[in-house]
């Protein structure tokens, strides 16, 4: 590389030193999540408007949603929020094996949720184009599912990076953000579950 980039790196590291990068990144991530939540709020608002104003809400032949399996899914996803917190505590105490174990458990629970969702989608008798009901259902669950997938992906990266020696010595911002994101995904799901499954 040229000397230019060397100087640039030097300058950047100086900036990093002077301002606590981890605190800044955490602040920035919070700001980002708040902003991201507005997308979901907009979708929720749209869903409520459609549900309350639409004349024929359920497509022909559709009775409603089964709540049993999604309820199990919900329990798994919400418990995983506690599991990732345990993982975070282990990392905080510098116990890497415990961290890896609980992070892996979170990943498995997240994956189980996605699997459960896929099974549910398979079994439904309405599709994306089945009126507003189908469209909003798949939009909300699909958009949330994308976030779950992103969360699992982030956890996988954090899991792999834990094998790099000394990776979490300097800063554990990566895992803080991943965990925060996971809690966010959970909170969104609770609202979503209430809107779609409970309020039928």
């Amino acid at each position: 590389m040229t000397s230019e980039s060397a100087i640039a790196n030097q300058v950047e590291s100086k900036i990093v030193e002077e301002h606590n990068e981890e605190a800044n990144s955490k602040f920035g991530f919070w700001v980002f999540l708040l902003s991201e939540s507005v997308i979901f709020l907009s979708f929720f608002a749209g869903y409520i408007v459609y549900k309350t104003t639409s004349t024929d809400w359920l497509p022909a032949g559709v009775e409603g949603l089964d709540t049993h399996d999604p309820a199990i899914n919900t329990v798994v996803l919400i418990s995983s929020s506690f599991v990732i917190y345990v993982a975070e505590r282990f990392l905080h105490d510098k116990k890497l094996w415990g961290f890896r174990f609980f992070l892996l458990a979170t990943m498995l629970m997240g994956s189980y949720f996605l699997y459960g969702q896929a099974v549910e989608w398979q079994g439904l008798e309405f599709g994306l184009t089945s009126g507003l009901y189908g469209a909003t259902f798949y939009l909300l669950t699909g958009f949330h599912g994308l976030h779950v997938m992103t969360g699992v992906l982030l956890q996988t990266i954090m899991f792999l990076r834990s094998f790099i020696p000394g990776n979490y010595d300097k800063s554990s911002f990566g895992i803080i953000a991943t965990s925060l994101f996971w809690h966010f995904v959970d909170v969104i799901w609770i609202i979503l579950y209430g809107l779609i499954y409970v309020w039928q």
């Binding site: 700001v31 708040l34 902003s35 507005v38 997308i39 749209g46 939009l139 958009f143």
Partner: peptide, 13 residues
Amino acid sequence: LFGLPALTAGAVM
């Protein structure tokens, strides 16, 4: 931060 996500939601739909 609070406005753009709403537009994004509409644009996705």
